[in-house]
Design a protein around this nucleic acid. Sequence first.
DNA 1: CTTGACGGCTAATCGGAATTAGCCTATAAT
DNA 2: ATTATAGGCTAATTCCGATTAGCCGTCAAG
Lengths: 206, 206
Amino acid sequence: MGTKEKILDVSLELFSQKGYGNVYVGQIAEAVGIKAPSLYKHFRSKREIFDAILEEMQRRYQETAAGLQMNGQDAGADGAIFQKVSEEQLVQMGIGLFRYFLHDEYVRKFRKMLTIEQFADKELGALLTRQYVEDPIEYQAQIFEMLIAGGLLKGDDPKIMALEFYSPIYMLLTWCDRDPKKEKEAMGLLESHIKQFNKQYGRKKK
Amino acid sequence: MGTKEKILDVSLELFSQKGYGNVYVGQIAEAVGIKAPSLYKHFRSKREIFDAILEEMQRRYQETAAGLQMNGQDAGADGAIFQKVSEEQLVQMGIGLFRYFLHDEYVRKFRKMLTIEQFADKELGALLTRQYVEDPIEYQAQIFEMLIAGGLLKGDDPKIMALEFYSPIYMLLTWCDRDPKKEKEAMGLLESHIKQFNKQYGRKKK
DNA sequence: CTTGACGGCTAATCGGAATTAGCCTATAAT
DNA sequence: ATTATAGGCTAATTCCGATTAGCCGTCAAG
């Protein structure tokens, strides 16, 4: 990994921990293993490091979102994948999402950074809302809509279903971000929640 | 309002917006209407201002928590108040909690401040978890347990019920903190959610 | 070989932010 | 009336952090 990437890497780590304003270029440099002035051979300013992280993470998000139609464009056409939903699959969808959000180091750090900066910078707040509220809800609502149309789930308001399915995931995620030791417990609660969800909205008995 | 209280007041406002590290004593002083050095007639340091806010807010929390048995001590004895739950009351409980969290200026600002500082200071993270995850869930689980015991709701896992009831409240709250314009929409979603909740766990038909 | 750019370093600059020193006024208690 | 205290101000101090200047070794291309 080149120095430039390493700078972005350790900066994200530090920003996600202390917030942009409380990280000093000297700390970044030290973590990289160089002296502060050398940073300026790679970026013109501290702010530019932050912006580079932002761009990179947005690029990655677009990528995965595109892969999932989470962008909110089409979707609804190729529901073929979901032609036989089971409790097990619902659980996998929820736990899988949770695990991904929680365990992908870049995703996790970036989310923490956005969390810290959300009120200082409107743009970042909007980004957090999009990535962790609006897009997931919309995406899951689409899935539930398909599942209902296919007769695999019952229910009449996909958006509320998505809200109820996803909110616990989100809350448990913020909980674990604060205290990773709670992951096990969170995972158990999440699984119980999804089974309960399935009991209420599922069509088949078991 | 004395100067000392005013300092705490504007400091909370500023800290909740930019975070402790990005607020300068000059800004606090200006917002109060005095010069920076005069702050030191009331507090020995910037940090002491922060700590004073923290103590005051924790005191208030204990107060309200005590009033609700949200502290997790006894409760379960005097369920008399809940002897006739209705959809309307469930809605009021949810919406009421949401409104209180969202509209009480001190509560809202303090929550935002904790949100910003949660990763920099373990204590603050734990405080946020207690006030916005563990205590509410535990409290509501107790209520649901009583309601089930009283035959007013059906269900077999009060904790999961609390998770499902409360998580959307929490998520919509963080959403509105970021963008108060969404309050109306959030309120609508919340009401739909609670009605759905009641449809699933309520005993009576309407 | 030699040259230029890449990337590191030390030393300096420059501005800003917390805090302290010391002064002054008003007011309330003696 | 006197005086002590509370609370404000200006000016200074001190420290720290971002950034710049300018030097130097390495290494690949000519």
